[in-house]
């Protein structure tokens, strides 16, 4: 699905608000058909980056091209091929569900009959058909989110920007949104999403860019990053000196991270190594689980938390 064509290219991309540097000279590329996730703690610069891609925020320095077009001079053309699902709900409360889509389509010069047929198709796809004539206030959080994504697809964009698409949703709501994003990807659309849910990034993204303090600190496929930084298994257990000593002697490459009362142990060795140690401490409650993106994320961005302790 992912092609070799570069669809978005940022070089030295920088955004400052007064003295504060929100995005600090980052370089990245997004390929056609790819799903790329921007991960990072709040304030890392994810949303600012997305806003520059859809020409909302002017650049302070650097260059950014979307589908070969320069964001500073070709904003209108870029905005016509990009669909934006912003972090905050900005549906139009003065209109019903269907009218929201019809009015929004008008901004893209889509003729009325075409707008209505696209709107109905999108409502069906996002399971909102029954809410067609409902007011926005009647919708649940999950429905609003789906309607915002539906609205972002009205202009049949090449690129879909999803800024925290599932923040605040319940588990069912999240899974419906994920499912819809997967179906959209099959249709070939390029997706850029920001999130601070690691499971979301792992479930949806071909590649993640981890941001911190306005910089991209790591970039790669989720599985590749997990193998690189964490390995396969993680052991979680309540802090115990004897246990930690045993682990360190049996597994020379072991890394022990103390998080409050909990200890997390990482190793690059294959499956099964922790089980051997676990047998020696039968009365201890140990959890051995698969390493995940959250472990990578905490390892890479957790320094600040350590400093604060």
């Amino acid at each position: 699905m992912v092609s070799a064509n570069v669809l978005i290219k940022a070089v030295g991309l920088t955004k400052k608000f007064g003295d504060f540097t929100a995005v600090d000279s980052i370089d990245f590329e997004v390929y056609e058909g790819e799903c790329v996730g921007f991960l990072g703690p709040n304030g890392a610069g994810k949303t600012t980056t997305v806003r520059m891609i859809y020409c909302f925020s002017p650049l302070t320095a650097g260059s950014l091209r979307v589908a070969g077009l320069d964001v500073t001079t070709q904003a209108r053309r870029i905005k016509s091929i990009v669909g934006v699902s912003p972090q905050e709900d900005n549906l139009d409360p003065d209109f019903t569900v269907i009218k929201n889509l019809q009015v929004y389509a008008r901004y893209f010069d889509i003729p009325k009959s075409e707008a209505t047929s696209r709107a109905l198709k999108l409502l069906k796809f996002f399971q909102l058909e029954e809410k067609r004539d409902a007011s926005i206030a009647e919708l649940s959080g999950g429905m609003k989110r789906r309607l915002i994504i539906a609205r972002a697809l009205l202009n049949e964009p090449k690129i879909l920007l999803l800024d925290e698409p599932t923040t605040g949703l319940d588990p069912q709501g999240r899974h419906i949104v994920w499912d819809k994003i997967r179906s959209l990807r099959k249709q070939g659309i390029t997706v850029i999403l920001t999130t601070h849910y690691m499971d979301e990034a792992a479930a949806l993204c071909d590649r993640v860019l981890i941001m911190e303090n306005g910089k991209i600190i790591e970039n790669g496929a989720p599985q590749q990053l997990i193998r690189k930084y964490v390995g396969q298994d993680v052991l979680e257990v309540e802090y115990d000196e004897a246990l930690v000593a045993t682990l360190k002697s049996e597994l020379p490459d072991v890394e022990v991270e103390v998080w409050g009362e909990q200890v997390r142990v990482f190793t690059k060795q294959p499956h099964g190594v922790f089980e051997r140690v676990a047998k020696k401490f039968p009365d201890k409650t140990l959890t051995i689980r698969n390493a995940n993106l959250e472990d990578v994320f905490l390892k890479l961005t957790g320094r600040k938390l350590d400093e604060e302790r």
């Binding site: 909302f56 904003a75 934006v84 912003p86 709900d89 900005n90 549906l91 139009d92 409360p93 901004y107």
Partner: peptide, 14 residues
């Protein structure tokens, strides 16, 4: 309150 302007400027309207 409604962020209507933000929604519109994400389209080709300036």
């Amino acid at each position: 309150f409604q962020k209507t302007f933000d929604a519109i400027v994400a389209t080709p309207v300036s």
